[in-house]
């Protein structure tokens, strides 16, 4: 059984937000919910300042704190390491959101449109039927993986190839090579969550 993971090369990201938008299109997420944000970070001091773009998503942690915090058991880890939420079981306690160090879980508070309380005809057709009062999250595009398409939408769209997706349990996979060769680091390792997303600097 594979353990899916991702490597993100920070030196390649140009901050185009194509991954952010591709994710929204693929998952039909409502306004205010971003599974794949790209954060900006300012490095250095004037006049030698550099802007770093940090693409993010759910880290699908090996020891996922959200799964442990969830009182309803709606969050679970699949055998392939992907953390998914069952919106039919979620009671909306948001304990998972408080426990996640990466801001990867999103609460869907009320049904509204991008431009006001009423949704446009396009929005009505576009947004997926997410349940109000539940928590939503990135699934590494598990619906695509289950169909045999082994690239999440964000990876497929990235024009610079900064996101690489693959099997962490396979030592010969591209992600494993990149992590070994370029010393991939996990976000907030001190939290002890063992993320499946690695960053290259």
């Amino acid at each position: 059984m594979p353990r899916w993971g991702m490597v993100i090369d920070l030196t390649r990201c140009v901050g185009c937000y194509a991954c952010t938008m591709a994710c929204k299109v693929e998952n039909g997420t409502p306004p205010g919910i971003w599974y794949a944000p790209v954060y900006e970070k300012e490095l250095g001091h004037y006049p030698t300042v550099k802007r770093l773009f940090i693409p993010a998503l759910c880290n699908h942690c090996h020891d996922a704190p959200c799964v442990k915090a969830c009182p309803s058991g709606a969050l679970r880890k699949r055998e392939d390491g992907i953390v998914v939420v069952d919106q039919d079981r979620c009671c909306g306690s948001r304990a998972c959101m408080a426990a996640c160090p990466y801001g990867a879980l999103h609460f869907y508070a009320k049904e509204e449109g991008e431009y006001g309380p009423e949704r446009t005809a396009f929005e009505q057709a576009f947004y997926k039927p997410y349940k109000v009062g539940t928590v939503q999250k990135c699934t590494f595009c598990a619906h695509r993986i289950d169909r045999g398409v082994l690239t999440p939408a964000c990876v497929e769209t990235c024009p610079t190839g900064c996101r690489v997706f693959g099997d962490l349990s396979d030592p010969d996979s591209e992600v494993s090579h990149l992590i070994r060769r370029r010393n991939g680091v996990q976000a907030r390792p001190e939290a002890g969550t063992c993320p499946s997303v690695f960053y290259l600097r």
Partner: peptide, 22 residues
């Protein structure tokens, strides 16, 4: 009352093995 789905409150009892809320 603070739950996103208050009518599903009984589901909050489902994960006592890991969740302190449960």
């Amino acid at each position: 009352s603070d739950l996103g789905q208050p009518l599903r409150f009984w589901r909050a009892l489902a994960n006592p093995r890991y969740s302190w809320i449960s």
